[in-house]
Design a protein around this nucleic acid. Structure first.
Length: 275
DNA sequence: GCGATCCTGGCC
DNA sequence: GGCCAGGATCGC
């Protein structure tokens, strides 16, 4: 579900966790299969104070004093919610709950169980199987257009759509923002990297930055499930040019929107605008 | 590279 | 009942 702007919005909404001490970490029996070593997760987090909440691509890192981080990926349908005074019982499909010493609690619910939780020992993320596969964050201020091109060129056979979805090239884009960035760059999602010149790739890189920042500004995109850590919906849906608009015009009226399927996933684009 | 797979739920 | 869904991995 959540892509970079949603995860960033969640991160910002959970700043209240900083300075709180973890009392207990609970995982359900159905906690996602990729979850590694629940006992070790508990040992490294319980009794520790949250020092920072960071984001890398679509991953959230909850770092505690002592340096260990809980690394969370929300998959398609994961939600993180903080409640200071939990009054109602846990929602259906709750798979992780961290209770804090002052009674606040952070819970993760995920109907489809594509979420993952794991541990990183070292703030760099080296040694964490999930983080070590990631390319640079799509909004990393030190990432240059030249570096993006260089990384893209390693995958000449990929379509531009699949390039953007590949988290080892740059991390953070998902289906919505990949479609939107390609529209902004006026590039066809079907175009192969090898047929895309350097100016076009650099234009795509700029479009990615614009689209992701806009997503963050609006608090992310709520299609159905997404809410931030305080329960707020995102408003970016009202600004999407192509995503989900099969058979309609683009939001700005510059062309018609067509839906195609690439590698089992829907892509929306405007053939009149995107070449 | 591409297709199949992991899951549940919502909608037609 | 069938199709679709904001993701990622694995095997060919």
């Amino acid at each position: 579900m959540p892509e970079l702007p949603e995860v960033e919005t969640i991160r910002r909404s959970l700043q209240t966790l900083i300075g709180r001490r973890c009392k207990n970490l609970w995982l359900s029996d159905l906690a996602p299969v990729e979850t590694t070593r629940p006992l070790q997760l508990r040992q490294r987090l319980e009794g520790r104070t949250v020092a920072a909440i960071e984001r890398r691509g679509k991953y959230l890192l909850l770092t505690v004093d002592g340096g260990a981080s809980l690394v969370i990926h929300l998959g398609m349908s994961g939600r993180l919610l903080f409640r200071q005074k939990p009054e109602s019982p846990h929602a259906k499909h709750t798979h992780m709950v961290i209770t804090f010493e002052d009674q606040g609690e952070l819970s993760l619910t995920d109907a489809r169980r594509f979420s993952t939780f794991s541990l990183a020992d070292d703030p760099s993320g080296r040694g964490n199987l999930f983080l070590q596969r990631l390319g640079p964050d799509a909004l990393d201020p030190s990432l240059t257009p030249e570096q993006f091109c260089e990384r893209a060129r390693r995958h000449p056979g990929l379509s531009l759509k699949n390039l953007l979805l590949n988290q080892s090239v740059i991390a953070g884009l998902g289906n919505i923002y990949a479609c939107e960035a390609l529209y902004t760059a006026a590039l066809s999602p079907k175009r192969r990297v090898r047929r895309t010149n350097t100016a076009e790739l650099q234009g795509l890189f700029r479009a990615i930055g614009i689209i992701l920042q806009r997503g963050i500004q609006h608090g992310g995109t709520t299609l159905r499930d997404y809410i931030d850590g305080r329960g707020n919906r995102g408003k970016m849906k009202d600004f999407l040019q192509v995503y989900g608009r099969d058979g309609m015009t683009t939001l700005d009226g510059r062309g018609r929107v067509k839906r195609i399927v690439q590698t089992q996933r829907s892509t929306w684009f405007s053939p009149e605008v995107q070449r």
